[in-house]
């Protein structure tokens, strides 16, 4: 297998082992491309285009579509249908949210912003599992 996929989430993690508690060897940005070397269930053995870093990524972070940031650019013109590319930052986006918020001031977006601040690190997860005497079997399901 020798195909390219793109990161479809804000931050994609390349891990040393095919598990969510695996060490992160590189952090990728939305739209970055990786080469798929081997499918390993939902975990894909990948190589990062550009840096050449090897590791594993979960399939939910990747798409076969090219992420296009400007639909007028050459890359978008080369692709034939919408099945092959996705427009980053287009459609339901920050501008649409801003406009919607202006008309609906009673909605609690500040609460959502605060909620987004509750990020949890892999280290916190590992400690949580260990202290709770839990055995994470999430890897390689």
């Amino acid at each position: 297998m020798d195909r390219s996929m793109s990161v479809q989430v804000r931050q994609g993690h390349v891990r040393k082992t095919p598990t969510f508690l695996g060490i992160i060897v590189e952090r990728l940005s939305y739209g970055d491309k990786v080469l798929i070397l081997k499918d390993k269930g939902d975990w894909l053995d990948i190589k990062v285009e550009g840096t050449g870093t090897r590791g594993f990524m979960h399939i939910s972070a990747l798409t076969t579509k090219k992420i296009v940031f400007n639909p007028g650019d050459e890359e978008a013109k080369k692709t034939a249908t919408s099945d092959e590319f996705a427009l980053a930052g287009k459609g339901f986006n920050e501008n649409v949210e801003d406009r919607f918020r202006a008309d609906n001031p009673h909605l609690n977006f500040a609460g959502i912003d605060r909620m987004e601040g509750y990020g949890v690190s892999e280290k916190q997860m590992r400690q949580f599992l260990f202290k709770g005497q839990l055995i994470f079997k999430g890897e390689n399901p």
Binding site: L87, G91, H106, G111
Partner: peptide, 18 residues
């Protein structure tokens, strides 16, 4: 896209917090 899903989710969430 997951990005659009995110913006939909933020607004649904803001409604739930309402």
């Amino acid at each position: 896209t997951p990005e659009q899903e995110y913006y939909i989710g933020r607004t649904v969430g803001a409604t739930a917090l309402g």
